[in-house]
Design a protein around this nucleic acid. Structure first.
Lengths: 109, 109
DNA sequence: CCACTATTTCGCCATTATGCTAAATAGTCA
DNA sequence: TGACTATTTAGCATAATGGCGAAATAGTGG
């Protein structure tokens, strides 16, 4: 990495990682990888109260991982960072002990 | 995402994300993207006490993001997940508002 | 306007993370 | 062995997170 990002850029990145650092939030991301979902659908995928799930979603939104849109009574969330699911696949490969070459599944633009 | 990972797999992923959720740890990862470094070099890149930096490194190691090896008096750390730096590049692209196609920089294996 | 549904925000408490200094370990070399 | 260097661990204070129920908000339809 020739040129280092600014402290600010690093904090923005850290915010994204922090948003992704909870199993229930990852579960929701998995769901969103298949397409837009309303809150009621996302809540069903995790075992926690509505208020808790709602806060998880606000954390994800704050970090820019998802975006949302209100239509009628419902709020629909969608994934704003499409590279997240494939990165998780990459992590799984590494944890399964696959060789380093196989783990280079993300090519920087 | 057709088949969902187990709860356990999700927790392992979350652990990795949590390890990456601190600016100073990300700074160290940037450094390690260029190759192996000893603790003394890594400490210099962040503004915190040795003990603090050392604990950051142990968090990264615990999550499997880095590995280390002791040689003589020094301990050398290296990146165990090569896809992390390119994922960060991906995040930056998204945050700069580049189009969705460009953001798909990680191809799942 | 009222009742009803979907979702978010608030207040509270328990748990975990962070950062520091000081102390402990481990390796080297005279 | 003893002094010295590199690194980790322990102990403690403070801040941030996670989770729940209750209350607040916003849209819909009568």
């Amino acid at each position: 990495m020739k040129t280092h990002p600014s402290k600010q850029a690093r904090e923005a990145r850290a915010l994204v990682f922090k948003a992704l650092s909870h199993p229930d939030r990852l579960r929701m991301i998995e769901e969103l990888a298949d397409g837009e979902r309303c809150v009621c659908e996302l809540v069903e995928t995790v075992e926690s109260a509505w208020s808790t799930a709602s806060r998880h979603l606000s954390v994800l939104k704050e970090a820019g991982v998802v975006s949302n849109e209100k239509r009628g009574l419902q709020v629909f969330y969608r994934l704003a960072l499409p590279c997240v699911p494939s990165f998780m696949t990459c992590l799984d490969a590494a944890q399964k002990g696959e060789p380093v070459e196989m783990r280079r599944c993300c090519s920087a633009t």
